[in-house]
Design a protein around this nucleic acid. Structure first.
Lengths: 303, 303
DNA sequence: GTTCCGCATGAATCGATAG
DNA sequence: ACTATCGATTCATGCGGAA
């Protein structure tokens, strides 16, 4: 095995085309990234043109495939831009090309941006969604669905009324004791598995970082596709959102970033998170009873 | 010009591959359709296999292009199925092929199905979205954005997340009463343009017909891309949902359907709608205050 | 008349079984 | 090996009957 300290829990500065080859093969459990879209980030990646996008991304994807564990997942957040009045087809072509490269196009999740960018055009409405393409290396991959269950619809509330108060209280205390047998049953009445449409607001440019996606997005996929202590890679980590999400959830991270300004911002964010390890453990346990984000029901706790 | 009675406001029985060539060219303002998905509807179209889907659809699309007016729109509701653990790429290939045929891939709307088909699998969640691909023949096409504006504010925003049963029941009663008490809340409230994500529940078979899409879906696109008295074509009209939507909104329709059973169902639905013209006007006015479908703000009423 | 509960039903998908 | 069929899983919705 590789010695962890060399590349783990760091933001590696440089172009991921140079950095990725230095990482050991089959070492990463999950890749979540939002690469620079076509014509974006001209100062760093030179503003890849739509027509060149597939050719630019394919060698990077080949390295990602080498670095990813066999049972790992690759989540690519991307959306094609409008070129000359049309949606450009480079993302569609990229999917086909990645399959030719050996990736399995397992699923396409939709990120519905509740507060999308404002604006008005004569021929289209505001773009309120982006693709989260899920690729894997093999049909059997790691997926921890229980970690992202959500509250059920209203109808379950009336159904829950069937349970007597004592029943509910009994189950409750049993849950809090930590070893109740019926945790799954009780929880199962309130929680349902989500679907492949994610409703998340875009992150406001509140602090000194402007992230490509809200932290809930990498958090959701990290909970879904990894366990604590697993390794999450983001080859275009920008202001460090993926790293912050990984740390919060007790996972290791590897970030790669070319822009020095972003690296600085990310370092500050990461420092602010890591200094509170005890709080993090409490958060994870409390998630058991938090109706909004139940997680780690069937995964070992952090030591 | 063609004499209208020959083909207008009818459901033409037969295979659209045979019927479409009999329609005059550049005569239709909007095409909305949900063709049989791959491996579906084996009894009529023989269950087109995913690998053959593009070849099957392309000649139909060529006829659709001939029939559509230059400034018209073509909305294709479709979703690729899972084949061997992966999303099949035939829809992506179809988009590319349609562009080669001369169509412009202007936009991709997402239909978010709040009540998606249940089920649990180890490698994916329930599929809760479908594509509504918007193709046009030229960059300048007809679009009436004001017709689909929705009320602004916290109410409509919370609606985006989850529409509970009680909320919906309240909506219904408000509409049915015609001019309920809470109308004051909406009058004077500003209207906002929607985005490219549509939240609609699938139609249940509990209603007397089972349709591919809920009537709100064709209604929305008919309001967006046509004016009253325009012509709407659906070459796979099934149980007649598109026809009912067109009639309700004062548009002409042309439907094509191969299955005799569907034709019968569609005929009954259409009869039930057309005999109540006065009611329709009332519905249209009440839509002003209906959170679900605001329409006809700047278009002439039926008369 | 309301409100509530029970129940059937989907453009699904996987894995096992059978030809 | 490759295809066809079947059972199991799961939840929002609307309808009908009951309180």
């Amino acid at each position: 095995m590789f010695y962890a300290a060399d590349w783990l829990d760091k933001i590696l500065p440089g172009d991921c085309r140079d950095i990725l080859p230095t990482l050991p093969e089959a070492s990463v459990d999950l890749i979540v990234t939002s690469p620079p879209y076509a014509d974006q980030r001209q100062h760093t990646y030179g503003g890849v043109r739509p027509d060149d996008y597939v050719d630019w991304f394919l060698p990077i994807a080949a390295e990602l495939k080498r670095v990813l564990k066999p049972e790992g997942s690759f989540v690519l957040n991307i959306k094609e831009r409008v070129v000359d009045g049309e949606r450009h087809t480079y993302v569609l072509e990229l999917i086909v090309a990645l399959r030719k490269q050996g990736w399995l196009w397992t699923e396409e999740y939709i990120w519905h941006k509740r507060n999308s960018y404002p604006g008005k055009w004569p021929n289209r409405f505001r773009d309120a969604w982006e693709r989260c393409l899920h690729f894997t290396k093999q049909k059997n991959f790691a997926m921890y669905q229980d970690a992202v269950r959500v509250p059920m619809g209203d109808w379950s509330q009336s159904r829950l009324r069937n349970l007597s108060d004592t029943d509910k209280r009994r189950d409750n205390s049993r849950v809090q004791s930590g070893f109740g047998k019926k945790i799954e049953n009780w929880v199962g009445r309130e929680l349902a598995y989500p679907d492949n449409v994610l409703h998340m607001a875009t992150e406001c440019a509140n602090r000194n970082h402007s992230a490509a996606f809200p932290i809930e997005l990498p958090s959701w996929f990290i909970k879904l596709f990894t366990q604590p202590n697993d390794i999450v890679l983001d080859p275009f980590i920008g202001s460090g959102t993926t790293a912050e999400a990984a740390i919060q959830l007790g996972r290791h991270y590897v970030g790669i970033e070319l822009d020095a300004g972003y690296i600085q911002v990310a370092a500050e964010r990461i420092n602010a998170v890591t200094v509170q390890p005890q709080l993090l453990v409490v958060q994870e346990e409390s998630e058991l009873y938090d109706i909004v984000g139940v997680g780690e029901l069937d995964t070992p706790k952090l030591g």
